[in-house]
Design a protein around this nucleic acid. Structure first.
Length: 230
DNA sequence: CAGTCCCT
DNA sequence: ACGG
């Protein structure tokens, strides 16, 4: 530790200053190590009650590589027969989703200033092979409310597009403890996850997730469940 | 169209 | 571009 070796290469600063779309916010290092562990403990308890499960695309039945679960009044669910929808019960256990941990409700209020709390927390688990193609978070009735996202565990290459599928896409490296949120003009922006960097964080393995990986939490507000939304 | 596959 |  004898000398300062931090790079001050100008292009590094330039790449950090990537201009993101209006309404899209990246807060690197929002949670310190203790804060990350605290949320992960909450999520581990949620998952004990509402285990991760494999979802599938509407009509084709193509499986999603990201394993998911939910907390809140509603959860995001998709399968071949029913398509994208919000429902109050876990598809395999039949139980209602556990409540959203208070730490995440506080984050939502602190960040967005929204008076109405989120009622859906989607839990996404990425193993070494998991990806999530470019998509829009639509279907929610409340497009006024933003989407808030917390990254835990391994780094991810996040894709930030535009309002059209063919708009140019930026890559954004997300680290454990980062928070991203988007609303207003960015609420329907195309986004996705190109992949993770396996083994880049020890948070999950330290907290008992044997194989590591990445957990992402997304908070939203929806007004009602739905049978299908494409 | 939150999927996979294949091509310039 | 595809098929569902």
């Amino acid at each position: 530790m004898g000398h300062r070796s931090r790079s001050r290469h100008p292009t590094l600063f330039a790449s950090e200053a990537v201009d993101l779309p209006p309404g899209f916010h990246h807060l690197p290092g929002f949670y310190d190590a203790a804060g990350q562990r605290s949320i992960l403990v909450d999520i581990r308890a949620v998952l004990a009650d509402a285990p991760l499960f494999q979802q599938a695309m509407p009509k084709t039945g193509a499986p999603l590589s990201v394993k998911m679960s939910n907390a809140g009044t509603f959860g995001w669910v998709t399968d071949r027969e029913g398509g994208y929808r919000y429902q109050s019960r876990h598809p395999t256990t039949g139980k209602q989703w556990p409540p959203i941990p208070s730490s995440l409700l506080e984050l939502w209020k602190k960040l967005t200033g929204e008076v109405i709390p989120p009622n859906l927390c989607l839990i996404n688990f990425y193993d070494a092979e998991a990806r999530l193609g470019l998509h829009q978070d639509k279907g929610e009735s409340s497009l006024d409310a933003p989407v808030v996202s917390v990254s835990l565990g391994d780094d991810a290459t996040f894709l930030v597009g535009g309002m059209s599928r063919k708009d140019p896409v930026r890559r954004l490296r997300l680290h454990s403890g980062d928070v991203v949120w988007f609303g207003g003009p960015a609420r329907l922006i195309y986004h996705g996850v190109e992949g993770i960097v396996p083994g880049s964080s020890s948070l999950l393995t330290d907290e008992g997730f044997a194989d590591g990986g990445r957990i992402n939490l997304t908070l939203r507000r929806i007004d009602r469940p739905s049978d299908e939304m494409t």
